[in-house]
Design a protein around this nucleic acid. Structure first.
Lengths: 348, 348
DNA sequence: TTGGCAATCTGTAACGTTTCAGTATACTGA
DNA sequence: TCAGTATACTGAAACGTTACAGATTGCCAA
């Protein structure tokens, strides 16, 4: 009497297969519907039944089938992190990812990484996610003042959070580092050390925090009465070699700066190399204040002055924001700004 | 005559909703089954019908519903990258991810990142993936000679690839960097520069490539007749401060090494700091050969000697391997070993 | 007693896909 | 002519879940 093929109805509680609602229904003697509702604490299920179902479910290790839920409800339980595979600074990415996973660890959410490359329209991956309904929420970075992706997602009603702010008069969750404050602090610190001809290594032109940084730099310059040495040919997403060469060129001029403010650690390495290529000495001829996201720069040159940016925190905040929005919170309340640390000199 | 609620059967080709097989069936005048088969080039569908269906599908931008497929077939079209959120070296992670996404970009696969933390059994995330059927394939790192995760996945028949080899007599896809060769090359290079008292900054004890590295180091030492200065208290997953302090201690001893071989760039930064803490000079008193995964170390100190390890390549290879296995290839053919570059001194 | 109602529980359909078991048609060979 | 068969297509069922629309029971007021 071979019954390898189980027909509808003769579900049994035995052995190997992953338990489903039907399994639970069979075991508890209840209907599938009742079990489903009992598991989500629906009010019309008797208190005892509810407990009983939940107990059995826990015992046999029931886990809802994601495909079933997704097909029925459209809920994917997925958050997508959209990344540029060429530009994104290295350590940045892993920290953000870790931050995000930290937050979603005890939720049913999975994190998927959706890449796009330089050649593509940055809107492509977002459009893909929305059109295919592949995620309940999206996190984007490299945010621009007028960001088509944010606009698109708002129009299509998908919750998202941006790393960096926009400036479109539209409200949405974001997390940002206060780069205005950073640049200002940096300038003031350099001025305090007697530096008054400062150059700025900017973020990528076009991103929102480019403006913030430039403004913070400019405002503080006039505040302290220092002057800017233009260095517009350089931004942090250029290659190490480019930045190094341009810095060396700059430092060989008579009107060279005596201080730098740099928006990223990798660029700072190149800037320092360029300074030294020009035969100058860090700390004596020139001071450099740089953002960093790991305790790297002080190993590199102890004369460097650093401000820490915590990307892991950013990841957590972004994840919290998206989940909050998905959960129905007011997007306007899901915005956060991270204040820079003090400027830190090397301490033994 | 209000027909807001569409009952089964009166599907229409209009407007907003995402097209499904039913939409295509309606538009082509065929049955859903036929459409389904036509799209996957089943042989029992007439050539013209096939073309016609595929044309229409392309035109209206049909994309199979992942939840539908997954529910019906169990195929998730997901690859999971399992990461330790505490140990993994920073840049490592983003490079691997980029490598993986590069390969799966023109496949239907999504990449999900499954984290686990120090406190957890590394087997936990893998067990979760298998039990919930959340992925068609898995990539793991921090591979051990006797790796319970690999054994578990083999037992449960889920395709996977390991970053690093195992040594259990079980065959499975992997990608590895030839750390035996790396350590050997490094030793020979140092010997060539007259260094003969060498210390090794090892990978994390317990991982397979720890053994490879140690063996490569030891074999080359006896080959060139140099001796080892024990430095067992240090491995690359310790903190910067620890490594730095221990290195400084070591370098203050009279029997200090005159050469280092370091398995990771971050550790090398710390080692160099330690060397300099002890008042010694890189290139004069001691040489350091280090692996690196980005062009960082030569900016740091031009005296450093580097060997490049390409993690992006590793990611690609691992992705290719998993996809290959999923696609039915023989796991034994999906193994690759990456040969280290030469030892590279700074070149202007 | 009866009608009404609250409290619990249940069957059915549907989400989009693939597979199974056909059906209809035309062609083949005798 | 007919059976046999290859070709091209199709409906129904199933994957696991939730929502809708009841069904059953007991209790209370009238």
């Amino acid at each position: 009497m071979d019954r390898r093929v189980t027909k509808k109805g003769d579900d049994d509680a035995s052995g190997k297969e992953r338990p489903t609602l039907k399994t639970l229904a069979f075991m508890t003697g209840l209907g599938v519907t009742t079990v489903s509702r009992a598991l989500k604490d629906a009010p019309e299920i008797g208190a005892e039944t509810r407990r009983r179902v939940q107990l059995v479910a826990k015992q046999i290790g029931y886990r809802p089938n994601r495909a079933g839920v997704r097909l029925r409800t459209g809920k994917t339980n997925v958050i997508s992190l959209v990344l540029n595979t060429e530009h994104e600074l290295m350590s940045f990415v892993s920290d953000i990812i870790y931050g995000v996973t930290e937050v979603i660890a005890d939720t049913p959410y999975h994190l998927i990484v959706t890449p796009y490359s330089r050649s593509q329209d940055p809107l492509d991956p977002v459009r893909y996610l929305v059109e295919t309904g592949s995620a309940d929420g999206v996190i984007i970075s490299r945010t621009q003042p007028n960001d088509p992706r944010a606009r698109y997602m708002l129009e299509h009603g998908i919750p998202f959070a941006t790393h960096g702010r926009t400036d479109m008069g539209l409200v949405h969750p974001y997390h940002d580092f206060d780069n205005y404050a950073f640049a200002g602090e940096a300038v003031r610190y350099l001025a305090g050390r007697g530096r008054n001809r400062l150059a700025l290594v900017t973020p990528p032109v076009g991103l929102t925090y480019y403006r913030h940084t430039v403004n913070g730099f400019a405002d503080a310059l006039s505040e302290v009465g220092a002057s800017e040495v233009p260095f517009n040919t350089v931004s942090i997403d250029q290659s190490i070699e480019q930045i190094r060469m341009r810095t060396a060129q700059l430092m060989r001029r008579k009107d060279r700066p005596d201080g730098f403010v740099s928006s990223a650690a990798a660029a700072t390495l190149a800037v320092v190399a360029g300074i030294e290529d020009a035969g100058l000495k860090l700390g004596r001829d020139v001071d450099v204040v740089s953002k960093q996201s790991s305790e790297l720069l002080h190993l590199f040159r102890r004369e460097l002055l650093v401000v820490n940016e915590n990307f892991r925190l950013a990841g957590s905040e972004l994840a919290r924001a998206v989940l909050g929005w998905i959960g129905g919170a007011d997007p306007g309340t899901l915005q956060s700004l991270s204040t820079p640390s003090e400027v830190l000199p090397y301490r033994g």
